[in-house]
Design a protein around this nucleic acid. Structure first.
Lengths: 205, 205
DNA sequence: GAGGCTCAGTGATAAAGTCACATTGGTTAT
DNA sequence: ATAACCAATGTGACTTTATCACTGAGCCTC
């Protein structure tokens, strides 16, 4: 049971103590929202364990999942909000019971100044996120929906059925619920998938 | 004629001198490519003046413009590549005569450690880029092509015709050339636009 | 066992993407 | 100047996605 974030563990003892002393420990439950679009940012969240989904809401009411934060991730989005002093553009939903630290921005800056390893990890984390988003842009712009859906199912619904509604899948891939319903129905006809209310199982061949 | 990047100017004198001493000055011309997909990263580029377009190539051969770098921007993408030690995923095309500095990554890290203002600006720049990409995802996922096209024209082709081909517009918006051709033709029929080979002018009403 | 939920299915139509060519305008070589 | 060439644009036919407006199905509660 890691009690500290990898980013904290990598710090020399005196900085680590200071970080832990000023950080606020947060416990979140599935369904909670960490922040909503427009919210101000009150510190830098670092996820210790669990999973948080970050998504955007389009004008049409549709949404799309941008990325997820898991153990040892930090919320790169928040850094931008802290620096620019504007609100979040996305919203974050807790998916699994999650523990997190909320680090005051002053302390964050101090750690950035004083620990090379901390800097390194933060920048790397930022790079990864940028990369994720670039891949997402490419997928959304050029990917075919049936292949994106199959990709998701292969990653999440092999072996045992995944507990997910068509609506949730639509948000996951940034499309409309009807599109998912039709694609799944077709895949079912072809025996690639087994469907039940709120469940989808992908059948490997 | 600013001789230094805003990020350099904000540094205290001794750091500034060190930065300028170790940075390599680069002059680029329209058509040059700063980096291609897969290239390794040899330092952190900072744009002094000019304009560089960063875009991705999809599997289908289509591309999409992710963002542009202009005066006083730094290439956030490169930071990720430097930190993670992997190649670029996108490619960068010079659009206008451009001057840039190439800062060794060791020096970059040193500046991050020693100047709060530098840190602040770098992180803010990162935040902006992240934000740009999130907006792009939303637009690509939910925006209507005719409205996105109109938006581009309003920003670039009012008053005098913009020198741009349908193909270039397609890459700009991440779609196929035929789609742009048809939309423009329709707008021409409705008198919203004047067309010529390699030129588009938007007619405000 | 009757409502009242949320979840899923579907027809009709519009928007966007794909493929395969036809045309056109401008440049270059003879 | 004329032919030849090439990049840019136009278009038809067809597929895939998105949108709108419903209908039907499963499940829970009273």
């Amino acid at each position: 049971m890691a009690d500290e974030h990898a980013l904290i563990q990598c710090l020399p003892a005196h900085l680590r103590e200071e970080a832990m002393a000023s950080a606020q420990r947060v416990r979140l439950n599935p369904g909670d929202m960490v922040f909503r679009a427009g919210d101000g940012c009150r510190g830098l969240p670092m996820v210790l364990s669990g999973s948080v989904r970050v998504q955007m809401l389009g004008a049409s009411g549709h949404g799309i999942v941008l990325y997820r934060m898991g153990a040892d991730d930090l919320c790169t989005l928040s850094i931008g909000c802290l620096m620019a002093g504007r609100g979040y553009r996305a919203e974050a939903h807790v998916e699994e019971p999650t523990e997190a630290l909320l680090l005051p921005s002053v302390v964050f800056d101090q750690l950035m100044a004083q620990s090379g390893e901390f800097r390194q990890r933060v920048m790397a984390s930022y790079g990864r996120r940028l990369d994720d988003l670039m891949l997402l842009v490419e997928e959304v712009a050029f990917g075919r929906m049936d292949q994106r859906l199959t990709g998701w199912l292969r990653a999440h619904a092999v072996g045992r059925p995944a507990a997910v509604t068509h609506q949730a899948l639509a948000v996951e891939l940034g499309t409309a619920r009807e599109v998912i319903s039709r694609l799944l129905k077709e895949m079912e006809r072809q025996g690639q998938v087994r469907l039940a209310r709120g469940k989808v199982e992908y059948l490997e061949r």
